[in-house]
Design a protein around this nucleic acid. Structure first.
Lengths: 339, 339
DNA sequence: CTGAAAGCGCTTACAG
DNA sequence: CTGAAAGCGCTTACAG
């Protein structure tokens, strides 16, 4: 069907081996032969077959990207496309392709990872999330397949290449900002409790309270379950407390806006009555009213560096695991007010 | 290195051919042999090598997904992840994988498409957008590689499998809604002018005006360029007109919110002074203030059906091109008011 | 019901 | 500087 190396060889009156060497620009082939072979490749419209090439090279020049279960709101926020853009740029720079997981459940995704590894479909994997007790990460650890993670692994972090923000520190900065403005009753709308990023931010929250001599109150924590089941109710409950919060930190700007919507329904004004800060610095956050103060976590960088780390491991088997901390910073806008 | 079919064959005391047949569950192999081979596959932890299998089968069970240049705000909106989710589900159902384009410029993407096709990396391609005079679509037409498109192709649409909303009709419905409320001066914030979807919506806009005896005014059209360069200025100009619009239709909810932000700066109230309607029904749109009326274009369906169409063509070479119209509907919320 | 052989399209020691 | 041969890991007519 398609033009193969043999067709080119015959036409150019050389052996297939020679054609192969010309493709690889092997210096032992004479310029004259190269010239001739290249011309016939051109005129025949020859294009090397990746599958065949990869089979003998025993690699694929493809990286697998594993995204978490995509059915949640999380998928509506810009994290995924933005991190993918970072990965794309790095992969493209090194002429690697991206193979994406398609599974909808953890079970399906696990099977895909096994298939990617054992079926030799990819040279390595980027895990786009880090959760507690994740089977997939355990599998990757054992498999020997190069991989990197966006987010600090819960266990054996020092033996794994990963990128992350300093979530504890940045959350403490967010808290200091609010506490510095006079806030003491600060609610925290947490992300999924099995994600390490959520744990880290919660830890930052708690540490900050402790360091500032403010007692931790369980009622100020809104779990993701509660938000997803009935966000409005969860927020109402917060403000039915004897001492309602005067500030709210949410794990995502989109959630912050959802909360702001509920607050308006409750006739609670932002920022006059309650201050609010989000994470992820959504493109909208500067346009909306109030403009939302938010933590820019540099999602693109996270993806870009995760890909770089992975390619490092793929290229050099001996490469030691590396950890990269991507900067993050609080962008102050109009959604906070002192008291 | 890895366990191959030969290792299994040796261990199970059969030929490699037999092992291959057991994998394919060939009915001519005795149950006894199958049993034995399966056991040794299990105990050895054998897993078939995709590259080898694909090389002889001359296919890849992979579909290429080509996304547009990803540097714009478009990438911040949920279209991409949502359409990808639809594709993923369909692909996963048929046990196909997804190979993603990584290029940042049209040139790079074109080269990737050629590589995917000629290098036999994928069995077919989904083009996530349709633009006027697109080289990539021209290439695909000529190549013979199965492909499907999200969005109506600008030329030769009847020979191509694609999914789309009825953008002309839905835009006319949106306009009828506004006109029915008494609006006559309706501005239109358009998407990229080289996208067919933008042209269709603009056509719906113009047709609707004509049918309702309202004259078309060039000044009411805000082009994407103007919005991207200086959105605030573009909106201000709209309201500096002698007859400023009383309603605005935008091609995307995120843009609608950006506009609403500018309007607030200009002390123009929504919906009291001006009504506004978006497209894409972003998850936030029901939470924000005002809750935004928006057209739900069923993005997930677009992706899902595009993948189905592609798989149909991959599976059956003779399959005639099919076009699927995915439903869309205006969701009324609080951002419009009669006059 | 099973095996030996050829082949998918390429690469790479080994010879010369 | 170039070619013949073996091989990557699998599948599939062809025999028996």
């Amino acid at each position: 069907m398609a033009i193969t190396i043999k067709d080119v060889a015959k036409q150019a009156e050389v052996s297939p081996a020679t054609v192969s060497r010309v493709i690889a620009d092997n210096p032992r082939i004479s310029e004259k032969t190269k010239q001739k072979v290249r011309e016939t490749m051109e005129s025949l419209g020859y294009y090397p077959n990746f599958q065949a090439r990869n089979l003998v090279a025993q690699k694929t020049r493809t990286i697998g990207v594993i995204m978490a279960n995509s059915t949640t709101l999380a998928f509506q926020n810009p994290f995924f496309p933005e991190v993918l853009r970072g990965i794309s740029v790095s992969a493209h720079n090194s002429q690697y392709g991206i193979y994406l997981s398609t599974g909808a459940t953890e079970e399906e995704i696990y099977d895909e990872v096994v298939a990617m590894d054992q079926g030799k479909r990819v040279d390595g994997i980027i895990l786009l999330y880090s959760r507690v007790g994740d089977r997939i990460m355990d599998y990757l650890m054992k498999s020997g397949l190069p991989f990197s993670v966006v987010g600090r692994p819960h266990r054996n972090a020092d033996t794994i290449s990963y990128v992350d923000n300093d979530n504890i520190s940045i959350t403490k900065q967010v808290m200091s900002h609010l506490i510095g403005m006079g806030h003491k009753r600060i609610a925290f709308i947490a992300g999924g409790i099995d994600f390490v990023v959520s744990l880290d931010r919660l830890e930052g929250y708690e540490e900050s309270l402790a360091e500032n001599g403010i007692s931790f109150q369980e009622e100020y924590i809104v779990k993701q379950d509660a938000m997803q089941q009935d966000g409005k109710k969860a927020i109402r409950r917060l403000f039915d407390l004897e001492d309602p919060p005067t500030a709210i930190v949410t794990h995502d700007d989109l959630v912050a806006y959802e909360v702001i919507g509920y607050l308006e329904d409750l006739q609670i004004r932002v920022p006059e009555d309650v201050s609010i800060i989000g994470f992820n610095n959504h493109a909208l956050s500067k346009h909306l009213k109030p403009p939302l103060s938010s933590v820019d976590i540099c999602i693109y960088e996270l993806g870009f560096e995760a890909a770089n780390l992975l390619l490092e491991k793929i290229t050099d088997e001996q490469a030691a695991p590396r950890q990269i901390t991507v900067s993050s910073r609080l962008i102050e806008r109009g959604s906070c007010q002192g008291r």
